[in-house]
Amino acid sequence: MRTEGDLIHINEWLKPLSWLYGIGVRLRNQLFEVGVLKEHSFSIPAISVGNITVGGTGKTPHVEYLVNLLHDKVKVAVLSRGYKRKTRGFVLAGEQTTMPEIGDEPYQMKKKFSDIYVAVDKDRVRGIEMLTSLEDTKDVDVILLDDAFQHRYVKPGINILLVDYHRLIIYDKLLPAGRLREPKEGKARADVVIITKCPKDLKPMEFRVLTKAMDLYAYQELYFTTIDYDDLRPVFGDPDRRMKIAEAAGSHVALLTGIASPRQMLLDLSAMGMTITPLTFGDHHQFRERDAQTINEKFAALPAPKLLITTEKDAARLEAFEGLSSEVRDSLYVLPIHVSFMLGQEENFNQKIISYVRKNSRNSILVKKKDDNKSKDRHHSGNRPGTISFRDN
């Protein structure tokens, strides 16, 4: 039985170091609170998606959810740090940009959404200034800040905090004893808190217990999301050669991951009737020649029928990876994921985001429609204010 916080492990003997670490983090936050360290606000809508824990909470699929919600209505830019990239400073992704230049997650995003701007810069203030001033990108309407909850030099219009259901911050401890980057009280900066990776069979009482346990302020909104899996698609070869995830039931699957928290996927695929052999590497792992040998040997040893499944983030690094056997290349599939809101919360969340962007962007078609409606009302005083309809995503 999976329960909230079940993946948390506290190293009790490291708690003294956590206490010292906490002093430094609290001091930094206090310097921002009193204005010694400056937060920068921008006229353009900026939405931050991040966490206060080390490890995956589902930032990328939640950013992609926002992109899907907005990109056919406004010009969207995603600004990321570009973790483990081989470049420095500000880099704007183009058609020929490679994964090492911007990092695996931004590369994945640019491949999936060719009509948005994707940029990386460790200095988010500079990154926003570049996106809003460059000739190629100055028509941007909204900037999504990936993994920026602790980058306090930028003050976003909406601050979204993600909390993994299996690593609830209320049960965790500061680094290095636990996995918190800052005290759990830091959640007070969030406008929206989303508990991610929730089991699909959560009961109403469990939602109420979680809501009470999170102990949010009245100005904060709490949402719950779960992971859904899309069709498997080959990493190499014909991209139209798709496979329903249900078709993999009964297969021996080597699950190849280099992400922070692969256990959720392992549990889900096992529940779908697959026999899983984990091939687990560290987060953002850069695959090397010796890794190819390990992957080839372990996959060759599996009995048929067999598949090799990986994540979208790992696929971005594996595409240019040499040394994989022809058997591995022919059997390697990526498993895309997306998030779904629970308790019927999707419409409320969507409207919150759209309303914020509409009210704060002067270039967007959302504003144009709103202004057009106001103009019509001035000429037809008997009309009630028009509403804006949005195409389903």
Results as ranks from 00 to 15, higher is better:
171 Y>S: 08
375 S>K: 14
385 P>N: 12
30 Q>H: 09
379 H>I: 12
367 V>T: 13
371 D>T: 14
202 L>G: 11
197 K>N: 12
132 T>V: 14
8 I>H: 10
312 E>G: 13
65 Y>L: 06
83 Y>W: 06
80 S>C: 02
381 S>V: 06
201 D>P: 13
198 C>G: 12
3 T>L: 11
20 L>W: 07
187 K>D: 02
69 L>M: 08
109 M>D: 04
300 A>S: 10
36 V>K: 05
270 S>W: 01
137 T>N: 09
391 R>F: 07
205 M>D: 09
226 T>A: 13
161 L>Y: 01
140 V>R: 00
90 F>Q: 10
228 D>C: 09
149 F>W: 07
181 R>I: 07
170 I>W: 00
237 G>W: 08
273 G>L: 01
111 K>G: 14
240 D>Y: 08
233 R>S: 07
289 E>S: 14
75 K>I: 14
211 T>A: 12
20 L>N: 02
47 I>M: 01
46 A>K: 02
277 T>S: 09
294 T>Y: 06
350 N>Q: 13
105 E>T: 09
19 W>P: 00
132 T>S: 12
387 T>V: 12
295 I>H: 07
76 V>R: 00
98 T>K: 15
91 V>G: 02
42 F>Y: 04
276 I>L: 15
307 L>K: 15
75 K>T: 15
72 D>E: 12
183 P>Y: 02
174 L>P: 04
284 H>I: 07
3 T>W: 08
328 V>F: 02
43 S>D: 08
14 L>V: 00
296 N>E: 10
278 P>I: 01
62 H>D: 03
121 D>S: 15
47 I>C: 01
128 I>H: 01
322 E>A: 13
134 L>M: 14
219 Y>P: 00
381 S>Q: 04
262 P>D: 03
80 S>A: 09
392 D>Q: 11
83 Y>N: 07
356 Y>D: 01
382 G>A: 08
155 K>E: 10
103 G>M: 05
235 V>P: 08
300 A>V: 09
257 T>E: 01
124 R>F: 02
202 L>W: 06
93 A>T: 08
35 G>H: 00
336 P>M: 03
265 M>Y: 09
142 V>I: 11
263 R>Y: 06
309 I>H: 02
103 G>Y: 02
336 P>R: 06
188 A>M: 11
44 I>W: 00
102 I>C: 03
82 G>Q: 07
215 D>R: 10
60 T>W: 01
384 R>N: 07
86 K>V: 04
104 D>Q: 03
388 I>D: 03
231 D>N: 15
253 V>I: 15
348 N>H: 15
36 V>S: 03
375 S>D: 08
7 L>A: 12
215 D>E: 12
65 Y>K: 08
178 G>H: 03
207 F>A: 07
256 L>Q: 05
138 K>P: 13
74 V>A: 09
110 K>S: 13
73 K>C: 00
290 R>E: 10
233 R>E: 09
346 E>L: 06
388 I>Q: 08
15 K>N: 06
276 I>R: 14
160 I>T: 06
32 F>A: 04
299 F>L: 08
95 E>M: 07
64 E>W: 01
57 T>V: 12
300 A>Q: 09
223 Y>L: 00
